[in-house]
């Protein structure tokens, strides 16, 4: 028996959430996410300029972490989800490499939450740096858009049913030495 419950919703929901995430990534990357005023250093940062600034100030391991969390992971998740959806949607032939795709899904499922790093970072800094005029961190609307995008990617991964990948496969039968 193959207990996959394939219903039309199981493709539409992840696809819709993934599209919503992609849409939200546009304002998230275009708009400033945070305004920082620290001792004569007043600036307005987008996600990308924050990464560049970290890199330029010599904190490249940090820049890499933020780059992965805020840039690479959301994009990778959307591309990966796209691959999974296309693979499931194509009915003409059986899904060719269900094992690899299942592993891809497991990875997507695991890494999605780390995208929230930037959101928590801004929230924490805004709570700490409140010195008034000389030092202030003010969250901007871009971070809300980014948080929405992350939530949508997580919802999309949750909505995707990996058992669809195994729709055409025979369940493995008990082999003699299993008994």
């Amino acid at each position: 028996m193959n207990p996959a419950p394939p219903s039309p919703v199981s493709i539409h929901r992840p696809a819709a959430f993934a599209l919503a995430a992609a849409v939200m990534l546009v304002p998230a990357n275009v708009l400033p996410i945070v305004d920082t005023r620290l001792a004569g250093d007043a600036r307005s940062d987008t996600i990308w300029s924050g990464v560049v600034e970290l890199h330029e100030s010599g904190l490249w391991p940090l820049a890499l972490v933020v780059f992965l969390a805020s840039f690479a992971i959301p994009v990778f998740k959307l591309v990966g989800l796209g691959c999974l959806l296309v693979a499931v949607k194509r009915r003409a032939s059986a899904i060719r490499r269900p094992r690899a795709l299942t592993r891809l899904y497991a990875v997507l499922d695991e890494i999605g939450r780390w995208s929230m790093l930037d959101v928590f970072l801004v929230a924490f800094l805004a709570g700490v740096v409140r010195f008034g005029e000389p030092a202030m961190v003010v969250p901007r609307v871009g971070i809300a858009a980014f948080a929405a995008a992350v939530v949508f990617t997580i919802l999309a991964t949750r909505a995707f049913d990996p058992r669809l990948l195994w729709r055409d496969q025979q369940p493995a039968a008990a082999r003699p030495f299993d008994a």
């Binding site: 819709a16 939200m24 304002p27 809300a144």
Partner: peptide
């Protein structure tokens, strides 16, 4: 469910 990306689109455009 496709209302979700539609609403996201409106929200993004508004922002």
């Amino acid at each position: 469910i496709w209302l979700v990306p539609l609403i996201a689109l409106l929200a993004a455009a508004w922002m």
